[in-house]
Design a protein around this nucleic acid. Structure first.
Lengths: 207, 207
DNA sequence: TAGATTGTTAATCGATTAACAATC
DNA sequence: TAGATTGTTAATCGATTAACAATC
């Protein structure tokens, strides 16, 4: 396996995963890069190039076995393992993510939610308990948490990140509207929901 | 102004917008492409290239006036106008987005929320009323809605899109985990929250 | 075998970076 | 004026597409 896959390729993997899952659900057993191209919107050439970064999953004259290819992509994305997660911040977004079904479907297990507001501590959201934020570090250590999801306001996000850096979490998925930074090798994804909307606005502004 | 700006450039605009707003908040009046490079993480050369797609906003020997540059980006993104929106689906995500503050801050006005479940119809979320989904089309026409935000489940998203196609909405921002498609020239953004997480998982899988 | 389709190399295209003359 | 920094052209780099031999 090529060790230096370009970011452009990696970002397309979830889409392959999604469309292959759909094909599998519809009992399609076999697909050519050409057919996949038609439904996924990448060129057949790009599909073959992308897949060959990870191995030769197809067969000349036949195409790809959908089930097999799905499994390969699933493994490449690391979804053959499970991941334990916590959510920091039980506001509207934290609440929504805790209830987000896609989430559990892929092997992400939400173990706890952390909050500063006493009003929310002790509640159950989607069968997961809301704990005092002061317990965050010890909970992460004791439960081997892999991923922390930040749903705090903009002002707390970097402070929480600094605290998370000292724990064993491997990744931070940040929804607060700021780019949090780390000095360690924790993987960070800063999601800016609004960016998508601004891009939409760019295209409709003169309509 | 260049009429054919590449997608790569357009996708960077919201980040410029965000960082310039921050600078403005911190009373920074002036910035060079080199200084901006240090904080935003694009190269100085790329920053100058990007901005010059839209006009010469800087001054040789001086740099860029932050306030002026912010206004320019704001206008390029179409944020000098306001947009009326509706949310379809008052579940957890619809609920979270209705309460999402970033939203109102940029001139997006949420006018109504539409639901199929009688249990939710008539509620107020963030001072916005939840209406029967059957009223969606007439409401959009009467209120000149610009953007529809789909927060339904996966099965309803395309059906809602088909209905929206027949209205005057200019853009669809879809959060259901499926790529909805249109035959008209409505702008569509399919957001897949989970994709970000899968990418994170890719990077931590062997840690 | 003949037809189909991959895997892979080569060609093209587009985006980023470097360089520097223009100019504030 | 001298120094700084843009705007812009040219060079480089990387990603996408085309082509086709290999092979199922």
């Amino acid at each position: 396996m090529n060790e230096n896959i370009s970011m452009a390729v990696i970002k397309r993997l979830p889409k392959y995963h999604r469309y292959l899952r759909e094909l599998l659900k519809n009992d399609v057993n076999r697909i050519s890069s050409k057919e996949l191209s038609n439904i996924i919107g990448f060129t057949a050439s790009q599909i073959r190039q992308d897949l060959n970064n990870f191995g030769g999953f197809g067969q000349q004259g036949y195409g790809y076995d959908v089930s097999n290819l799905f499994d390969e992509i699933n493994t490449i994305l690391g979804l053959d393992e499970t991941y334990d997660t916590v959510i920091i911040g039980a506001g509207n977004l934290g609440h929504a993510l805790a209830n987000y079904s896609c989430f559990n479907n892929f092997g992400y297990n939400l173990k706890g939610i952390f909050e500063i507001s006493p009003r929310l501590i002790g509640m159950q959201i989607s069968n997961v308990e809301v704990y005092d934020i002061d317990l965050m570090e010890s909970f992460i250590e004791e439960n081997d948490i892999d991923i922390a999801i930040i749903c705090t306001n903009i002002n707390s996000a970097q402070k929480i990140t600094n605290r998370l850096e000292k724990t064993k979490v491997k990744a931070i998925w940040n929804f607060a509207p700021v780019d949090v930074v780390t000095k360690t090798d924790i993987e960070v994804q800063n999601v800016h929901l609004i960016d998508n909307l601004l891009t939409l606005t760019y295209f409709i502004k003169d309509k």
